[in-house]
Design a protein around this nucleic acid. Structure first.
Lengths: 353, 353
DNA sequence: ATTTATTTCGTGTACGTACACACATATAAA
DNA sequence: TTTATATGTGTGTACGTACACGAAATAAAT
C-alpha cells in the first residue's frame, strides 16, 4: 500500500494513465517538442489532475546539467580585509552543494571602481546563471542589474546590504538600524552624564553613505527613546588617507574636551584607533566588523568594542538560500537578519565566523 | 573532466581504490557486519582519506526506509482554536516532504491534563521517530522527554515556546519579551499622560504563567526605557469561567477610573472583549493571537489590536527544520524568532498565515 | 506506389546509493 | 570425506527522473 501511494504520482503513473511512455511525459514536462498537440494536452491535463510535483531529489540526481550560481562581491582590498570572510563562506557553501552538480562562479569588483562592477554584472549575465548573490554596493547599477535578472527569470539575493523595492528572493545581512541602536545601548552603560560622544562617519565612497546613516539613525533613536542627556558630536570624513583623517579627529577632540567615547559607524575604526593612540587622553572606542586590523587593535586595547555580523555566515546563507529555493524549491525568508554580536578583547577568540 | 571530478568521490571510487565491490563499501558505511576486519579498516581509511560525503539526494531516493517525524502539540480545544493553525502548518510541511519518503506522526495532548502529555511522549518514544517537534507546554515533563531524546540521539525542535538549556536543534516561535515591548510601544502612541493601563494575565494553567511574565517584562521594560509616566495596574486571573473573569475585570475598572487601555497578555482577550462590551465606557483593548474568536471581536470593534506570530508558519518551519537537518544534513538556526505582526480591523483580511 | 523526410513516440541507460540475493571460501560438525 | 554453517564478497535491481538513440507512424516528395 505505501508503495502504491508513492507510485500514484510520478511520471510513471502519468504515463500509465495517458497510455504513453515516460519518455513522452518527460517531453511535455520539459516543454520539449516532438509531442503531438493531442497527447500533449492529454498529458498536461493529467499532470494537473494529479497535481504532480516532480521529485526534486531524483531530478537533481539524474540531471546532466550543471546548475550555476554567480556571486558578486568586492575583492579583498588592502584597506579592509573584510571580504575575505564572505569569500570563505561562499567556498564553504560551494563545497557542500557541489556534489549535487552545482557550481558557484565567483565574480569580484573593485569597490572604488563603479565600471568594474558594471563590467562584472555583464559577465555574469553572459554566463546565464541560474541564481545570483550579490553585495549591491552601487545602488543604481545593482538595480539595473537585478532588473535584468528579474526579466530573465534569474532569482537573486542581496547580501550585506539591501536594495529595497527589488524583487529579491532574500536579503541576508545586518539590521543596520538595530545595530546602531545596540551600539547606543552599549554607550549608555559607559557614559557618565556630563560626557559626550563623537560619532564618526568615515567613507570615501559616497554611495555607501546611506548605510552609515541608517546606523546613525538607530544610534540616535536610542538616545531619543531613552532621553539620554549626552551630546553627540558628529563629523563626516570623506578622505581616504590616514594622515588627514587623524588630523580631523585630533582637531575635533581638542575642541570638545567633554568627549570620552568615539563611535565609528563602519569598519574603518582601526584607523581611528591609531589616531587616538597618539593622544594622551584615553578614549573608549566602538566600531564595526570582525576584520584583521580591528582585531589587532582590539587585542592591543585600542578598540574597546566591535559590533559584528558574522560575514562568513552571511555569504554562506546567501548561497544556501539560492540552493534551497532553486534546487529544492523550498520557500526562503525574505529578510534574514544576522544576529548582532558584540566582540571584546575577552571574547574575540571564541567568535567563530 | 567534470565527470571525473564527480566520480572521484562516491562509493564506486572507494570500491575501486580498495579493490572491492560497492556492496562491501556499502556494508562498512552502514556498519553492517559481514566484512572482515582487514578490509573494513582499509575501506574506512579510504573513506577518511577521500573525506567521503554521501550524496544525500541519492541516499534518500534509494532508501527503502521511511523517515518518521513526530509532532506533539495540544489538541484544538473549545476555549481556544489556536492550535488548528499549527496543525495546518504541519500538514503543509508533510505534503511537501512526504514524497521523499517522510512521514509525520501527529500526536496531541490535552492542555489541561499533564498526564496526557506524558502519555503521548511515551507513545512517541515507542515509535522511535527520527526527529521530534514539540510545544513544550509542561516544562518539567518536556525536559524529561527531551533528555531521553538526547540520550537516544533523536533531534528535537521546540515550537511556540522554548525550554532553555536543552540541546534542541532549534526553537521556532515568538520572542516573548520583544512582543511585550512592541505592545508597549503601541500603547505609548495611544495613551495620554494622565491615563493608565490595565495589564491582564489570564491563565488557568500555572505552568504557562512564565510566558505571560516574559511579555509583561517586555511591556514594562518599554515603559522604563522611555520613562513613560502612565501607571500600570496589573491583575492575575486564575479562573476559567467567563463570569468570574468578567466580575474581576469590572471590579478593577470601577476602582480605577483612569484606566483607558487594557492589555491582555495572551489569547484570552476575546473574553475580556465581551466583558468590556457591557460597560458604558469605551476601552482600547490589545491582546494576542490570530484566532477565530479574537478575529470576530476585532471585526466587531471590540478588540483594537492583535499581536500575532503566524502560528501556522511556526509549525511549518519546525517540521521543515527537522527535514533540513536530518535529511539534508544542513545546519539550522538555533533560534528562529517569528516576526511580530500587528493586526487591526483594517488589515486582518490580508494576514495570511 | 515507392522513397524520403518529418513527426511522434518508446526503450535503454545513467545518476549515486540501498539492499536483497547469490556465490565463494573457510570452518565446524557429521 | 561429506555435509552443514558461518563468514566474506560480488551482482543485480530499484528509487524517480533525464536524455540519447532508435523505431514506428505519418506526411511529403518523387
Amino acid at each position: 500500500m505505501p508503495k502504491k501511494d508513492r507510485q500514484l504520482s510520478g511520471v510513471k503513473e502519468i504515463a500509465r494513465r495517458a497510455n504513453v511512455s515516460i519518455g513522452t511525459v518527460d517531453r511535455v514536462l520539459h516543454n520539449r517538442n516532438g509531442v503531438s498537440p493531442k497527447t500533449r494536452d492529454k498529458i498536461k491535463a493529467i499532470i494537473k489532475e494529479l497535481n504532480y510535483q516532480p521529485n526534486l531529489l531524483a531530478r537533481r540526481l539524474a540531471s546532466k546539467k550543471v546548475i550555476h550560481f554567480a556571486t558578486l562581491i568586492p575583492t579583498v582590498s588592502k584597506d579592509t580585509s573584510f571580504w575575505s570572510l564572505p569569500l570563505q563562506g561562499i567556498l564553504r557553501a560551494e563545497a557542500e552543494i557541489q556534489q549535487y552538480n552545482i557550481k558557484v562562479d565567483k565574480y569580484f569588483f573593485d569597490q572604488d571602481d563603479k565600471a568594474s562592477f558594471v563590467n562584472q554584472t555583464r559577465k555574469i549575465l553572459k554566463g546565464k546563471p541560474d541564481g545570483v548573490m550579490l553585495s549591491p554596493d552601487f545602488i543604481d547599477e545593482s538595480t539595473a542589474f537585478t532588473n535584468k535578472c528579474s526579466k530573465l527569470g534569474i532569482p537573486f539575493v542581496f547580501m550585506d546590504s539591501d536594495v529595497e523595492g527589488q524583487k529579491s528572493l532574500s536579503y541576508i545581512g545586518p539590521h543596520l538600524f538595530d545595530s546602531g541602536y545596540l551600539a547606543a545601548n552599549l554607550v549608555s552603560y559607559i557614559l557618565r552624564e556630563n560626557e559626550s560622544v563623537l560619532l564618526l562617519n568615515i567613507s570615501q565612497r559616497m554611495y555607501k553613505h546611506h548605510h552609515l546613516l541608517r546606523k546613525e539613525e538607530g544610534f540616535r533613536a536610542y538616545f531619543t527613546d531613552n532621553s539620554l542627556p549626552n551630546k553627540i558630536t558628529k563629523i563626516d570624513i570623506r578622505k581616504g588617507e590616514k594622515l588627514s583623517i587623524e588630523r580631523e579627529i585630533t582637531s575635533v577632540l581638542s575642541r570638545n574636551k567633554d568627549i570620552r567615547l568615539v563611535f565609528v559607524t563602519n569598519s574603518r575604526v582601526s584607523i581611528v584607533a591609531q589616531a587616538l593612540k597618539k593622544l594622551k587622553k584615553k578614549y573608549i572606542l566602538i566600531g564595526y566588523d570582525f576584520i584583521e586590523e580591528n582585531i589587532k587593535a582590539l587585542v592591543d586595547g585600542d578598540i574597546d568594542f566591535l559590533i559584528c555580523q558574522k560575514p562568513g555566515e552571511q555569504a554562506y546563507k546567501g548561497v544556501m538560500s539560492l540552493y534551497q529555493n532553486i534546487v529544492l524549491n523550498a520557500p526562503v525568508d525574505r529578510m534574514q537578519f544576522m544576529p548582532i554580536d558584540i566582540i571584546t578583547k575577552e571574547n574575540y577568540q571564541f567568535y567563530k565566523n
